[in-house]
Nucleic acid binder design. Structure first.
Length: 426
RNA sequence: GGCGUGGUGGCCGAGUGGUUUAAGGCAGCGGUCUUGAAAACCGCCAAGGGGGAAACUCCUUCGUGAGUUCGAAUCUCACCCACGCCGCCA
């Protein structure tokens, strides 16, 4: 949630910054907020003046009662003003609710350094690793997965529909090996605290990180209990300290969680969704950091480096993109995407997104800290990065490391976790 | 699912209609004392919001929402959550 006061102080500049996202509806929402805020403040002033009068008169009644003096004529006039206060209060609350609801649908302000424009304006910051060359035509992972006997897409369809892959045998073991490898890297080497959170969360939790109220259609929901399956561990983990006031000394907080993620991904199937490219359920290791506002720029580089380290150790060629204003997610101010090269599909696949949310999520979730003993509480800054998502990483591992005989070499870092250095056709 | 108990500031905890402008304690901050520290003692110390250049001032908040009342932490109703016991269960 953006700060209403910022909108008040600099409506033109804030509006212009938000318009860089290229969404005309945002401008309308901003205008609506400005108008609602103006009306709300006028109403609050009026109501509060009346309340101050009422409270003073109420105190006078109490004084007279104690002194056993008559207060009947005062009580009669109070009855009238009490009704007016009640009416104004109802009006104020309705306006406040509308203002809040509108504000919740306004995205974060893009960082000034993000390129302006749609996804085409994304900027490649750097590339790392060698794109492999093949003496034969490399196969896509859905073919390799089948010949290796580790990926069963058809039976997944039988169980749950398309987009629910089944990993079997060495495939299931590979999933487990990758998860353990990443968790060990982030906990032991990078110093994150491991969290195993709930996979079902409330509306309040999803509102805290920004998925609700605007993106309910992207989520799997359980209407009976009004709970939702998490689309990412970011949601439960960022909300761990919701409605808390943290001591400055505990920051930065660093958490890592391995969870399944559930996304409806409404839209037609096609070549972008084949195999493991876009699925409704997938596993992901996620790193989350909460820090002081003055640390967040450095923390963003750090969390990105932590995600990159996973790909380096897996010996996967990747590149880092800075997302343009129009491609940056609703809650994020600035995002770096990590894209891994996948030789079989011949494309860069997004396998991590490292974002800083400034105080946008902290404001929604009331994540605060006290900068110094006795000082006013401030909002923390939140950040997260996938470290990393499994399916596309598996696709890249299979496709980049395939041999002509259909076998697949595994990177050294994974061998102790997997227990072998090759996957062999069945 | 049934019955019961409870939800109060950063934390603990008192408080059954009007000096509660929420007692007291812990933590924190400042001071006295001390070579320094500790202890002891004294003082300060909730959050959110409106108005104001500022000093300041006003409003709201005791799980959430509605109600009774001139006035609600306190009374009424609904809901949520936690804990305990019973039932069911990996």
């Amino acid at each position: 949630m953006i700060d209403v006061r910022l909108l008040r102080q600099d409506p033109g500049g804030t509006r212009a910054a938000l318009m860089r996202r290229g969404d005309a509806a945002v401008g309308e929402a901003v205008d609506a907020v400005l108008e609602l805020d103006r009306r709300w403040r006028a109403l609050v002033s009026e109501t509060e003046g009346l309340k101050a009068e009422r409270n003073a008169a109420t105190e006078e009644v109490a004084r007279r009662k104690r002194a056993k003096e008559p207060a009947d004529e005062l009580l009669a006039s109070l009855k009238v003003s009490a009704d007016r206060v009640k009416g104004l209060d109802t009006e104020t609350k309705a306006l406040e609710a509308e203002l809040h609801e509108t504000l919740l649908r306004i995205p974060n302000i893009p960082h000034p350094d993000t390129p302006t424009g749609p996804a085409e304006a994304n900027r490649v910051l750097r590339a790392c690793g060698e794109v492999p060359a093949f003496a034969f035509t490399p196969k896509p992972h859905w073919e390799l997965g089948q010949t290796l006997g580790i990926l069963d897409l058809q039976r997944g369809v039988k169980l749950s529909g398309s987009g629910f892959p089944v990993f079997t045998g060495a495939g299931a073991r590979l999933v487990r090996a990758l998860a353990n490898f990443m968790l060990d890297l982030h906990t032991v080497t990078h110093g994150y605290v491991e969290v195993s959170p709930p996979y079902l969360v409330t509306r309040a939790t999803l509102t805290g990180t920004g998925q609700l109220p605007k993106f309910e259609d992207d989520l799997y929901g359980l209407p009976t209990d009004d709970l939702f399956l998490i689309p990412t561990a970011e949601v439960p983990v960022t909300n761990l300290h919701r409605d808390e006031l943290l001591e400055a000394g505990v920051l930065p907080l660093a958490y890592v969680a391995y969870t399944p993620c559930f996304r409806r991904e409404a839209g037609a199937a096609g070549k972008d969704t084949r195999g493991l490219l876009r699925v409704h359920q997938f596993d992901k290791v996620e790193v989350v950091r909460l820090c002081r506002p003055d640390e967040s720029a450095g923390e963003h580089e750090l969390i990105t480096a932590h995600a990159e380290e996973v790909l380096k150790r897996l010996e996967l060629p990747y590149r880092v993109l800075e997302l343009a204003s129009g491609d940056t997610g609703f809650s994020a101010a600035r995002t770096y995407d990590l894209e891994v090269w996948s030789a079989g599909v011949g494309a860069w696949l997004e396998c991590s997104s490292a974002s800083t949310f400034t105080d946008f999520q902290a404001r929604r979730a009331s994540l605060r800290f006290r900068p110094a003993p006795g000082a006013k509480p401030e909002f923390v800054h939140t950040l997260n990065a996938s470290g990393v998502a499994l399916p596309r990483t598996i696709a890249a591992l299979l496709e980049n490391n395939q041999a002509a005989d259909g076998s697949v070499r595994l990177p050294k870092a994974l061998v102790p976790y997997f227990g072998a250095d090759r996957l062999l056709p069945q």
